[in-house]
Structures are given as C-alpha cells and as structure tokens.
Amino acid sequence: MRHPSEPAIEVRNLKKSFRDVTALDGVTLALEPDRIYGLLGRNGAGKTTLMSILTGQGFPSSGEVLIHGTDPYENDGTLARICFIRESQKYPEDFTPAQAFKAAALFFAHWDQELADGLVADFALPLTRRIKKLSRGQLSAVGVIIGMASRAEITVFDEPYLGLDAVARQIFYDRLVEDFARHPRTIVLSSHLIDEIANLLEHVVVIDKGRILLDEDADSLRGSAVAVTGNREAVEGFIGGYRVLHRDALGSLASVTIQGRLGQTQRSMAAELGLELSPVPLQQLVVRTTMAAQAETPLENHQEALK
C-alpha cells in the first residue's frame, strides 16, 4: 500500500491568516512515516495552527496539505488514520474518561484497550469522575491516553503535558517510546519543554512567526553547533567565518555559539589556543537559532534578552 518514498505528511506553501494576524506564512514540509517529530517554537509561533490544518481540523487560507497523498479536510477515509488531541481539547460536558475512551474505541480502528487501561493505572486517572471535574493534569492524561491508545498512523500531540507533574511526564515519554518501538507510526509532538523531549525526537522542526526556521534530523542537529569558550581574542580569532548564533562575554572571557561542524584539525587548533569546545543542548540550539533569526543585524542588541 505505502510507497517507501511517499511522505506521511506533506505541506506545500501553507498560508493561514486570521483577521489581522498571519499565523502561517508559506510553510513547506515533508515528514517521513514512522518517525517522531518535534515541532518547536515560541507561543504564537503557529504550532497549533499548523497542527490543526495538517490534521484536517482547520483549513489553510492557501496552500496544500497531503496526508499519505490525500487532503484530510472533510475526508473521512484520511481522517480515520489521524489522531490529534488539542492542548485545550474539549469533551462532552457530561462524559467520564471511561466514556471518552469508549467513543475513541469506536472511531480508531487500532484502538488498544489494554494499553489504555495500563496508562489509566500509570496516571492514576479516576475513570468514573465527570471530565469537567478533573484537574488540569488529569485532563491532559485523558488526551494523552486517547492519543497513544488510538495507535493512529499519524498521531499529533499539542503540548500534551500541561498540568502533568514530572513523574507523569516521564511516564508519558517512556510509554510513548516503548509503544513506538512496537508499533511505529508518525508522531508529531509540540512542546516548550525541549530538553525533556530531546531524547525522544528523531527530527526537529522549529517554527517562528509562521515560518520554518529549522527542519533537520535531530542527530545531525546536535552536532551542528558548538560553544567556544576562552580568552576573548582567541575566541574571536577562532570563530572567523562561522555563523554566530550567540555571544556571551564576561571580562576577558568570551563564550560564542557558532553554527558548523568542526573537524579534527580545528579541534586540535582550539586545544592549542586553550579554547574549550562544548556541545550545545537542543534547547539552547533552538533558542539561539530562533533568536538569531529574529535579529536581522548583529546580535549585540539581543544579548540582554538571552540572559
């Protein structure tokens, strides 16, 4: 059925404007099947808008969305392969979690009740309490359970962790990875807590002001930048020619994050100059990239904001 080369999700020149806001400004993406994608960006960057359009819940002002080659909007055949739980997902006022799961079991062909039951126990979710009486964390747990147990080919989570405590979040990440290993599918996860999910992600998409800033494999992204620390003049001499993502200075010391891969020669050169090279965590990388993109001109003006 599936062509190996066919993207699971393809988005072409997507634009979406609300009355006076441009939420998406020419987004083009191709997400491969059976991988875990992180959709990262600031509040209001366009994450939720993008996710609701690519799951057929919203529609673009212009551009095209293809899920396994077909437009999901008002297309039940395609929609049946998708599960998107919103961060502020609404449930029928009088439903209990048990009833919400019963409904999900009706619509999602691959629904796994056992998995759902296990997650209910993990999250200690009260099954027979009205959903409107649940705490924010419990409400998020309902969404997480539907999203995971539906085993939809395309599963999209919009900041699924709101109100979940650190233990519950770890349970979510662990179960997601376990279940993904047994039942690979295309997962898109949006999050602010980048470092928490960094190990989960196979591919990172960073969006800002409705534009894609970064669309890269997570592994190659991790090696794509390096922080150079040491004597200011030595640092300045060393980084010539590289794109600077961020500068910090303290007296005669400087720490500069540069974009680029360093070869063996450059590494030994840095050692000779007494410079320290350190990897940049994913979260730092995303923050630096976003901020560097926001500043057209040199970065000095933005140094304060970074601290």
């Binding site: 057929g56 819940q57 008002e74 039940d76 599960c83 029928p92 006022e93």
Partner: peptide, 19 residues
C-alpha cells in the same frame, strides 16, 4: 447541546464535519 458538547470532541475523534 448535541453540537456544543460533542462537536469539538468529534473533531478529536477524527470525524469529518459532514459525518
């Protein structure tokens, strides 16, 4: 009620508006 209570949930159940 049948719309306000259930429509947003039906979207999460991947049901088209027509259905």
């Amino acid at each position: 009620q049948s719309l306000t209570y259930t429509f947003p949930f039906s979207q999460a159940m991947s049901v088209s508006r027509r259905t």
